[in-house]
Design a binder for these strands. Structure first.
Lengths: 190, 190
DNA sequence: ATCTTCAACTAACACTTGTTAGTCTGATGT
DNA sequence: ACATCAGACTAACAAGTGTTAGTTGAAGAT
């Protein structure tokens, strides 16, 4: 059922892994070639440039987040339900793209032509999130404090899951989502 | 009262600013020199190497965190009091070192000789934090869920404050600490 | 007036960077 | 049997990298 990776996808996935370890700028095409078991020049039979690899990694992930958030925003259900879905969205994407998440978080500043598009995706995602929170405050579902601080706090935790998930392979995603829902929404007090 | 920066400190602070924008690897000594209004070679009258600049930025900050956490851990007071102090510690350090915080978060992998020492500081910091949480769970002060997930969630938010604080200069630190205390400890539900 | 020091400079180094051009090899289609 | 072609290779490039050596001019000390 799982289709085999094309050579190009293999290169992009290997690049994502290296970018996570050392960051985009510190990874050379020769590093990437070595990791692929070939010479640097051979990479160019499959990809156009180092820059294009970064674009591919970041943009596809940003689109996945933006689309996921749109669906949640437009769905029925209470604000608290939607927060739960946002957590699940992040856990799932982070589980399946733990390497690429590092680039999304740390290497977006090296996007060039795609920077504007990336920023639009990010802004739209955050606007939807903020709207969900503001609606929740208005309906009295959640506490009335600065929604930007709230969003910031939740987002930074969710965005960093990629660091944590690979180290704790025993934690299953349902349990992780549930724990995060308690911590981020209900608080840690007894 | 504020002592004037030495030239070396000026270079390190300028470097931290550039490292925040583009990451350690993407900043060249020529970039740094230009930002300082001098030529690259002249930098070496004040510093030994690019590597040493990174070491200075990260290690001094990591020590500040480690020492602050030790004081909180060893102090009297409930677990919830200590969590509040941890939030205040992070807000304060992030406010005063918003550039260096970026390197601490994103460029630690480029430490070389100092890597082991950095990792020890980090581990000790986290051990103290975990102990505070476990004690809180045992005493029934906080909810009994995986303390590592709890610590991860709080720490990622606190570690990312450097991104957020400079954009919201109007938010005063007391108010920010208070909001974070509500969000991270008491939860967002009404 | 002379000496020393400081902090900038120019010039250059050896090496690494992303990328291109052109070549070779083995599999595939006819 | 032969032509095609994807995908590897070697060789090379121009530009950029961190860093060193040696020089210069101004400020402060003797």
């Amino acid at each position: 059922m799982k289709k085999p990776e094309t050579r190009k996808e293999e290169i992009i996935n290997t690049a994502a892994k290296l970018f996570k370890e050392k960051g985009y700028s510190a990874v050379t095409m020769r590093d990437l070639a070595t990791a692929m078991g070939m010479k640097a020049a051979s990479l160019y039979n499959h990809i156009n440039s180092k820059q294009d690899i970064l674009n591919a990694i970041i943009i596809s992930l940003a689109e996945e987040f933006r689309n996921g958030m749109r669906l949640i925003h437009d769905s029925d259900g209470s604000c608290v339900d939607k927060l739960k879905k946002i957590i699940e969205l992040n856990v799932e994407i982070s589980r399946q793209n733990s390497f690429a998440m590092a680039s999304l978080n740390n290497d977006w500043m090296h996007l060039e032509e795609k920077m504007m598009y990336y920023q639009k995706l990010k802004k739209d995602y955050e606007t939807d999130f903020r709207n969900i929170l503001i609606t929740g405050i208005e309906k009295g579902e959640i506490v009335n404090i600065n929604p930007d601080v709230m969003m910031f706090s939740m987002l930074t935790t969710l965005r960093s899951l990629y660091i944590w998930i690979p180290k704790k392979e025993d934690v299953n995603p349902r349990e992780l989502s549930e724990n995060l829902n308690v911590i981020l929404v209900k608080g840690v007090l007894t």
